[in-house]
Simulated scan of single mutants.
Amino acid sequence: MQNPVTTANVSDFAELPATASHGPLRIEYRWVNEAAGNAPVAVFLHEGLGSIAMWRDWPQALCERLGMRGLAYSRPGYGLSTPREHDVKWPVDFMTGQARDILPALLDALGIGTQERKRMWLIGHSDGGSITLLYAALYPDELAGAVAIAPHVFVEDISVDSIAQTKALYETTDLRSKLGRYHADVDSAFYGWNDIWLNPAFREWRIVDELAAIRQPLLAVQGHDDNYGTMAQIDTIAERVPHARLVKLDACGHSPHRDAPDALNEAIAAFISRPR
């Protein structure tokens, strides 16, 4: 079922041609803090049920703090981007495909070339944090650094249990109508995410070994009260990426940009501005 999406700002769209890994895609994107002119770009990668609209005003506020331009986009299946066909299931390695194929193609379509990418920061949350880590590992020379917020690098019981509970809420409460404010096809968005995370084959998914390829500065952030993952996620990142910096936030759940925005913004600003 298609649902109208209302957003405070107007999005633009990029057309990505079909490749061996995906069909033609229409990707919703939006620039924020364009007043920063030729400043470095911060690319925001949303969570598993996120979209441009669900970020609200946080990318703008953070980019103003950093003096950067921001680029937010809705991944295929989310927001106003090309929806997932309802009979299509995301593959176990879907996040690798997003990092390897979709994000580089979007950067190409928007004219963000090699030199600009060398100054680019990726800022990803949850599944978007995992995609951020994968991009940093796959393209270590095509970014200045990365911030992974509540990322997943392997599957924990707490994640699967919470996602199963979210499915029950989606099917029995008003959660579906609430999410429908942020996605043109809310069932496409929800079940694309929910089905893969609850797929028994996905229990074996892990990107731990890939992390060792990350060379650029990396900040990993986790809330102590996150019901979708434990500190083992970012502790594992630190084991594989010795130069990574960890920030563990008190009184903070799975969404630090909503639960503890001041502490998160301070941590990101301090990390990005520190001498290398």
Rank of each mutant, 00 (worst) to 15 (best):
M1C: 12
V10G: 07
D12C: 11
A18R: 02
T19F: 01
A20W: 01
S21I: 12
H22Q: 02
N33W: 04
A39R: 04
A42H: 00
E47H: 14
E47L: 05
E47D: 14
G48R: 05
G50T: 11
G50R: 09
R56L: 11
D57I: 08
P59F: 11
A61W: 01
E64S: 10
L66M: 06
R69S: 10
L71A: 05
A72P: 04
S74A: 08
G77R: 07
G77A: 12
Y78R: 14
G79A: 08
S81L: 03
T82D: 06
R84C: 12
E85V: 14
P91N: 07
T96P: 00
Q98N: 13
A99K: 00
A99T: 00
P104H: 03
R117Q: 15
L122K: 04
G129D: 02
A136V: 06
Y139P: 05
D141V: 06
D141S: 13
V147E: 06
A150F: 08
V153A: 02
V153L: 02
E156V: 07
E156I: 09
I158F: 02
D161Y: 03
S162L: 09
I163W: 03
I163G: 05
T166Y: 06
D174G: 14
L175V: 12
L179N: 04
G180K: 08
H183I: 04
W193S: 13
N194A: 15
L198Y: 03
A201W: 05
E204L: 11
D209A: 12
R215E: 10
P217E: 06
L218H: 03
L219T: 00
G223S: 01
A232M: 09
I237F: 05
A238R: 14
A238N: 09
V241I: 05
V241A: 04
P242L: 13
P242R: 11
P242C: 13
R245Q: 15
C252R: 10
G253H: 10
H254R: 13
S255D: 08
P256E: 03
H257Q: 12
A263Y: 01
A263M: 09
N265K: 12
A267E: 08
I268L: 07
A269I: 00
S273K: 15
